[in-house]
């Protein structure tokens, strides 16, 4: 059995769970509604299509963080609540495979969610001549920020059996990362630069402007892999207990 087979199977199972849950569709509708209304509003209010797309992705980044938190809160907490975590841990798969499998499911759900907003983006291209490059960059940033929020919440989901608690803790952690950027201007250097580097939104600013930058991509990937690593440790400690 290859390393990736259980990962694939687990992600398929979790994706099925997501698609059978009404809450997933509520999240999808919420994101599409926000994306649609921000597009409609921005085209009226912003000075140019460039600024409009920037504003739309600013809103989408927030929506993706919220949906990342809401989707990831159930990943392990639900298994614990329903008592299936013990069953899962008895399967011949290790913690890394569990973490990767479950996170892959969230990744596909978030990608699907972004795909649902494509008709709106295409309308922006045809009606207002939006730049495809800026849209592509915005989508990449939105996916990465959503996945980062999901990874953070995934970690808390591994610690508690209450989904709400996982969501609150994950949300608080994400907000903390956001606030670092907002408060950094009021702090003196060199701490200012350090705090700014940890901010979720500061790293998203290039994406919304249509600039894909390696340090920003590396930052999000680092946050995701760090929290997945922590989640794995949390699961391992449970097995040990």
């Amino acid at each position: 059995m290859s390393f990736w087979f259980p990962v694939f199977e687990l992600s398929r199972r979790d994706m099925g769970d997501f698609f059978r849950s009404m809450s997933t569709y509520v999240i999808f509708s919420f994101v599409i509604f926000l994306f649609g209304i921000s597009a409609w509003y921005a085209l009226k209010q912003q000075a140019s299509i460039f600024r409009a797309v920037q504003f739309i992705f600013y809103v989408l980044s927030g929506a993706m963080m919220v949906s990342g938190v809401l989707l990831a809160m159930r990943l392990i907490a639900e298994e614990r609540q329903e008592g299936t975590i013990e069953l899962l841990l008895t399967f011949p798969i290790n913690e890394l495979q569990i973490v990767l499998g479950k996170f892959t499911a969230v990744k596909w759900i978030l990608l699907f969610e972004l795909a649902l907003t494509l008709p709106i983006s295409l309308s922006l291209v045809f009606l207002a001549k939006a730049n495809l490059g800026q849209l592509l960059s915005g989508y990449l940033g939105a996916l990465l920020i959503g996945l980062s929020a999901a990874a953070v919440t995934f970690f808390y989901s591994a610690w508690t059996r209450y989904q709400l608690l996982a969501a609150l803790a994950g949300g608080a952690n994400v907000i903390f990362f956001l606030l670092l950027g907002y408060f950094s201007p009021y702090i003196d250097p060199p701490l200012k630069q350090v705090l700014r580097e940890f901010s979720f939104y500061v790293h998203f600013m290039n994406f919304e402007k249509g600039v894909i930058s390696l340090p920003d991509v590396v930052f999000y990937i680092s946050i995701i892999s760090f929290y997945l690593f922590l989640t794995r440790l949390a699961l391992e400690s449970r097995r040990l207990a």
């Binding site: 569709y25 509520v26 999808f28 509708s29 919420f30 599409i32 509604f33 994306f35 649609g36 209304i37 597009a39 409609w40 085209l43 009226k44 912003q46 000075a47 140019s48 299509i49 460039f50 600024r51 409009a52 649902l116 008709p119 709106i120 309308s123 009606l127 207002a128």
Partner: peptide, 27 residues
Amino acid sequence: EKPVSLSPRQDDFLFYSFVIIWPMLLL
């Protein structure tokens, strides 16, 4: 940078299609 100018029909299309119909259809 130039402001975007949409015709009233295009504006209505955007609003009704993507703010009301599309999310409601999905939900």
